[in-house]
Amino acid sequence: MRLGLFVGAAVFAVVSIGALMWGLPQYGVWQQELAGRAELVRAEQNRRIAVLEAQARLEAESLNAQAEVARARGVAEANAIVAEGLGGPEGYLRYLWIQSLGENGQDVIYIPTEAGLPILEASRPVAR
């Protein structure tokens, strides 16, 4: 009885070792195949995400360009209205020049006097 049990255990061990020797390489191949499929799916998903992000940037830039064109048209129309009210483009440019004269507080205008020579301000301190 003991001998039968020993022989049964030995046969079971040999069969188990044989199954493991055949099964472990098969399991490794199967595991690698699943890992490869998972990596492929991950790469496809990343590509889809990159494409969608690029499409979103393209749409955003297109809308920004349309907004910029609309803003430029509005500015051009406003400039035309102001220029027309000031007697044309030359009057508008003169108006813009007058508006910019006092902006920095350091502009000096020399007005010609007799003989076309300006009065110089030699005693004026230099602003720094």
Rank of each mutant, 00 (worst) to 15 (best):
G88T: 02
D107E: 12
P112K: 10
L96P: 04
A72I: 06
Q26E: 14
V41L: 13
L58G: 15
G36H: 02
N104Y: 00
L101E: 03
P89K: 09
N64Y: 08
V51G: 05
L101G: 02
G74A: 08
I98A: 13
E121F: 03
G102L: 05
E103L: 12
I119A: 14
Y92H: 06
N79S: 10
L34P: 07
Q32C: 09
A67G: 11
L34M: 13
R47Y: 07
R37N: 13
N64M: 08
L86P: 00
G105M: 09
G74N: 11
R94S: 10
G87Y: 00
A56K: 13
P118D: 06
N79I: 04
L101F: 00
P112Y: 05
Q99A: 11
E84P: 00
V41I: 11
G23M: 11
A56S: 14
G88S: 02
V82S: 01
A54V: 08
Q106Y: 04
P112D: 14
P89V: 09
E121V: 05
P25V: 05
V29K: 13
N64P: 02
L96C: 06
V82W: 03
L58A: 13
L58S: 11
Q66T: 07
L86K: 03
E53A: 11
Q32N: 10
E90V: 01
E44W: 01
E33N: 12
A35V: 05
E53T: 03
L40N: 07
A80C: 04
E44A: 11
G85E: 07
A76M: 11
L40T: 11
N79H: 09
L40Q: 11
Y95G: 02
N79K: 07
Y27A: 14
V69I: 08
L34S: 09
G91K: 02
E90M: 07
A56V: 10
Q55I: 11
G36R: 09
L86E: 03
E114N: 05
L93F: 03
G105L: 04
E44G: 06
A54M: 12
Y95M: 01
I111K: 00
E53H: 07
V69N: 08
L24M: 09
L101D: 06
V75D: 14
E61D: 12
Q26S: 05
A43D: 12
E114T: 14
E33H: 05
I81G: 00
E39W: 01
G36I: 04
R73W: 08
A54D: 12
R42A: 15
N46H: 05
P112G: 09
R47W: 09
L34A: 12
L34R: 14
